[in-house]
Amino acid sequence: MMREAVFAHPVTVGIVAATVAVVLVAGAVIGAMTLAGRGTPELRRELWLRTGSWCLLLPLMMGPVLLGREWVIGAVTLLGLACLREFDRATGLFREPLVAGLVVLGILAANFAALDHWYGFFVALWPLTVGVIVIGTIPRDRPQGYVQRVALGIFAYMLFGAGLAHLSFMANEPGYRPILLMLLTTVALSDVAAFTFGKLIGGPKLLPTTSPNKSIAGAVGSLCVTTLLVATLSFFIFRDTPMAQPHWLLVFGVIVGIGAQAGDLMLSSIKRDIGIKDMGTILPGHGGVLDRFNSLLLVAPAAFHFIQFFVGFGMGQPVRLITGG
């Protein structure tokens, strides 16, 4: 498989440099706020916590992308398993260890298909894994709770296996680095932009029962920023491809922008339904892994198939590296 130098694409250099700069500026701004006594202590504390967590998260997210294809697939696998753990403990699916185990196998299989660069298997795993989850607990002869456990298992596999593994499969494209870095950073930025616009403008709430802190101003502002940023970066990444037309680039931007916010609202709905505030405690200021990566869950497959339609991933690269054939 062809490999490109880490910083071969100017967008890779730009995103990494901009990310470092943003974290430094954020630190400086919050530092200045603290010195000048601006904002409430609670707001400053929350800002510090979030920035501190980002300093830990960004290297963990961007490191594997820069290191190489196998690192990306490994990191996405671990991310999927970590998300599943939080999801099953929050929903009670962990009390059905057989279903949870089948979802684990599904996540491993989807990422294996990406590692193998076997698109046919990758696509086939969606219905096949669902079939296995559907069949899995029938031999136990315990129909009570069947619909709930199977539905939760399929939900979890769709999000953390089939969905997230699209990020793994993207790594089969030799020039995957700018694409993945763009998705990771713009999706994260969408969250920060919604928070910032919401605080600056305020106004009516978006969906107060689902997520009391989100405002319409935050959602619209964030969608505009994300759309423009994704469209601009995609212009440089997909130059000389059929995708490099202004309307398609803007559509792509809107897909990423809406997907990111929809993922966030999806997790809010799950949490409200169960009656919990955070999915976990592992990231101070954010909550659990899912609280941080929710925006990526729906963006990964949507962005993949949009790019696939115009450009494709790993075209001309050797396939079925492990299974042969």
């Binding site: 929050a90 929903t91 009670g92 962990f94 009570q144 709770g145 169960i274 919990i276 505030k277 405690t281």
Partner: peptide, 13 residues
């Protein structure tokens, strides 16, 4: 046993 949509008793620790 019926399925209960209920987080683990130790959730949030």
């Amino acid at each position: 046993m019926e399925f209960k949509l209920r987080p683990a008793r130790d959730h949030g620790l």
